Computed example of a mutant assay.
Amino acid sequence: MSHCAVHGCKTSMYNKPPGVSLHPCPGSSEMRSRWLLLLRNKCPMLDWSSSKLCSKHFENKYFDNQRNLKSTAIPTIFPNPSQSVKAIEGGPVLKTKMDRHLSKMTQAQLVADIKNTTVRLREPLNLSEFLTNDLQTRSDAPLEAKLWLLIKKQDHLNNRLMETIVKNKANAELAENSVEEVSKSKKDLEKNIETYKYIVKCLQEKQATLEEQIEILTAVESR
C-alpha cells in the first residue's frame, strides 16, 4: 500500500512531507492486538500484510536515533485531535464520552444506577411468550421483551458472579484459618520439642548422678 492507512491522513509515497516515513504493521500477534485496539474505527481498510502507517502517528519516543521505528511502537497520534489517544499500558483505551463517564463511576454507583433504571421499566407480562426454547427472543418480539431478556440474563450473571465471589472469599478464609492452624501447630510442636529437650537434659543429669552413686557404692563395697 502506497499511502497511510489511517482514515483522513493524506500521506503517501508520492507526497510525503520532509522527515515523514511510512512503516509496515507489526508481525507479532501481541503488537497487532495493541495496534488493533488503537486503530479501531481509524483504519477501515487495515491489512496486516500490506497496510502502512506514516510516522506522523507515532510519538518521538518510539523512534531510535536513526529514525527507525522501534518494535514496541504503537500509534497514538491521529489527524482529528478528538481522536487522539493516550496509550494505557495494560488497560483499555477510552475513546468515547460515554466510556470516560462510565470509567469515573464506581461499581456500587453503576449497580445502583442499573437497579434504579430497571425499577422504572415495567417487565412485559407476556415476556415468556416471546422467548424460544434456547432462551432467545422471537423475530416478532417487541423491543421491551428483548431488553428485559438482556436485563434478566445480566442479573443472573451478576448473581453468579456474586456467588463465586462469596465462595472464593469463604475459601480464602478457610485457607487463612488453615495457615493459622498450621502456624499454631508449628508453635506447639516447637514448644513440645523444647519440653522434650528439657526432659532429656534432666534424665541425663539424673543418669550422671546415678553413675556417681554407683561408683561410690562400688568403692565402699571394695573396702
Results as ranks from 00 to 15, higher is better:
residue 212 E to S: 11
residue 12 S to T: 07
residue 82 S to L: 12
residue 132 T to M: 06
residue 193 I to L: 14
residue 157 L to Q: 13
residue 24 P to C: 04
residue 196 Y to C: 10
residue 118 T to L: 09
residue 157 L to V: 04
residue 205 E to V: 13
residue 166 V to L: 13
residue 50 S to Y: 06
residue 23 H to L: 04
residue 15 N to L: 03
residue 223 R to N: 15
residue 27 G to Y: 00
residue 96 T to A: 05
residue 109 Q to P: 11
residue 60 N to Q: 08
residue 193 I to N: 11
residue 17 P to C: 05
residue 36 L to G: 11
residue 211 E to T: 07
residue 223 R to P: 02
residue 3 H to E: 14
residue 42 K to W: 04
residue 61 K to I: 07
residue 55 S to R: 01
residue 170 A to P: 00
residue 169 K to I: 06
residue 195 T to D: 12
residue 44 P to Q: 06
residue 22 L to M: 14
residue 202 C to K: 14
residue 133 N to R: 12
residue 123 E to D: 08
residue 30 E to K: 10
residue 95 K to Y: 00
residue 108 A to L: 13
residue 130 F to L: 05
residue 107 Q to L: 10
residue 145 A to L: 05
residue 14 Y to T: 08
residue 215 E to L: 13
residue 91 G to A: 13
residue 32 R to D: 04
residue 52 K to N: 06
residue 31 M to Y: 01
residue 219 A to G: 05
residue 163 E to H: 06
residue 91 G to I: 00
residue 122 R to E: 05
residue 162 M to W: 02
residue 136 Q to V: 04
residue 159 N to D: 09
residue 219 A to H: 15
residue 81 P to K: 07
residue 192 N to H: 09
residue 167 K to Q: 13
residue 101 H to G: 01
residue 78 F to N: 03
residue 133 N to D: 13
residue 56 K to A: 13
residue 157 L to H: 13
residue 48 W to T: 06
residue 57 H to G: 02
residue 21 S to Y: 12
residue 41 N to C: 06
residue 150 L to E: 15
residue 19 G to Y: 07
residue 57 H to C: 03
residue 172 A to R: 04
residue 130 F to S: 05
residue 196 Y to K: 12
residue 144 E to Q: 14
residue 194 E to Q: 14
residue 99 D to M: 09
residue 101 H to S: 10
residue 53 L to M: 10
residue 67 R to I: 00
residue 85 V to P: 01
residue 97 K to F: 05
residue 168 N to A: 15
residue 134 D to Y: 03
residue 132 T to F: 03
residue 66 Q to R: 12
residue 78 F to Y: 00
residue 171 N to I: 08
residue 146 K to F: 00
residue 173 E to I: 10
residue 203 L to A: 11
residue 85 V to I: 08
residue 137 T to K: 02
residue 186 K to N: 11
residue 159 N to Y: 02
residue 43 C to H: 03
residue 61 K to A: 12
residue 177 N to H: 09
residue 54 C to Y: 01
